[in-house]
Design a protein around this nucleic acid. Structure first.
Ligand SMILES: [Mn+2]
Ligand SMILES: [Mn+2]
Ligand SMILES: [Mn+2]
Ligand SMILES: [Mn+2]
Lengths: 228, 228
DNA sequence: TTCTAAGTTTAGCCTCGGCTAAATATACCC
DNA sequence: GGGTATATTTAGCCGAGGCTAAACTTAGAA
């Protein structure tokens, strides 16, 4: 069995690749809260194990074998998050940290029982897709709330899951999955985005608005289409 | 946070102390599947941390601080076993290995939610007592089925939880928690114990009978008192 | 085209928790 | 009470996964 450290590296390489296109030593160092030297070290080891391809000073890319493992861990993580939320009653800001530890130790049995108990779900509590057992994943690219022009109507489809404080802040303002939002206006000089959620208006800093991913809708549309 | 290795050492020291009275280097080495030298090494470290008292060449004893941690891990383990069995549908032979890994990574939040979901239980699927949050544990000393004289009537109250094959074997023969058994006879020369469970007779090797702990009852007694 | 700042790798070190082989202490037998 | 088997500890080693400081690449500015 691969160590928790290796599993985390592969998972983060996969995620940085999705988010930034290119995977660099320093990006991994930052995401893993580890020094660049440590990353180089581990990348050399992963390259020897044929889990990544490394072009020194340039970038690192997952091999098919590496991606398979990354998706397996991602499946663990997201099933766990949903199980903790739906079955055990965690709030969406608590699930990430717990899943981060559990993802490395659960058995295939545990994974399968969670999936069955949840009706073989396809989306986690933050709107991230859950890879299938055989490593398939259907990614939908959504824009950021921070990039919408004023007057836009949209539905929240995904939120960044790593900052618990931010998640609590969003939930308090009704910015949960599948919530409808309207961009009232955008203050200049990178000022806040003013949005309407239900009948309330909120002034969201760009920091926060960048972590909310949305699907645009027609202004007068009815109920938003549920992701499930 | 203490490492998983340290947590396992403390837990095993506690269990060996309960079962054998005296805790020796070699007993720990065997139970932890580790060399004696490794045990000595770790014990020295635990002694420096004031979690055990070590009398070289003699024995090791938990300090109050060490026992507190041991009981905390034991609580995790036993709550997990029960949760896996009751909520997730595991059989009693599957729960130990999974709990052995999870016990080191779950949060207090997870522990509390499991306990609540199970109605704050006091016994795990194998009949072991679950320590309370504040480190209290009520141990009942039961005799072994292998030690009962022929003609005895008894109720199964606890089984050794480490050997999955043995647990499946016992379950198939109806030797589950709270089952009534009668010792029909004992074959000489350390031969098998012949027991009656329900209307079936089974010939149990001493190996197996030693792992079943029972409470004696009167021959004609009615329903056994449930442990819950 | 050359210089320099930022990014990356290398070198050397550390802790943790294992291991084997050798030394030493204890206990038991005669 | 001495000799020996067994248990335990010590000594020295290893791999995993971190770290800092120094060396080296790369790319952008002048
Ligand atoms: Mn992780
Ligand atoms: Mn998530
Ligand atoms: Mn364990
Ligand atoms: Mn148990």
């Amino acid at each position: 069995m691969l160590s928790a450290a290796i599993q985390d590296y592969l998972k983060v390489i996969y995620k940085v690749h999705r988010e930034a296109g290119k995977v660099t030593t320093s990006a991994l160092a930052e995401r893993l809260s580890v020094s660049s030297a440590s990353v180089t070290n581990m990348i050399k080891k992963l390259a020897e194990m044929r889990l990544v391809k490394h072009t020194p000073y340039k970038q690192v890319v997952l091999t098919p074998a590496g991606e398979k493992i990354a998706l397996e861990i991602l499946r663990h993580h997201r099933l766990l998050e949903l199980y903790l939320a739906e079955v055990m009653g965690y709030s969406w800001d608590q699930v990430h940290d717990e899943a981060e530890k559990l993802e490395h130790v659960i058995s295939e049995e545990f994974e399968e029982r969670m999936s069955a108990a949840l009706g073989h779900p396809s989306v986690d509590p933050h709107g991230h897709p859950i890879p299938s057992t055989d490593g398939k994943i259907t990614t939908t690219d959504h824009g950021r709330l921070s990039d919408l022009p004023s007057g836009s109507h949209a539905v929240v489809r995904r939120v960044d899951d790593r900052d618990a404080d931010c998640l609590r802040y969003l939930e308090q303002r009704g910015l949960v999955l599948n919530a409808r939002v309207e961009v009232i206006r955008r203050e200049p000089f990178n000022g806040p985005v003013v949005v309407k959620v239900g009948s309330d208006e909120h002034h969201l800093g760009l920091e926060v608005a960048r972590r909310v991913f949305v699907e645009k809708t027609a202004p007068g549309a009815g109920e938003p289409v549920s992701a499930s």
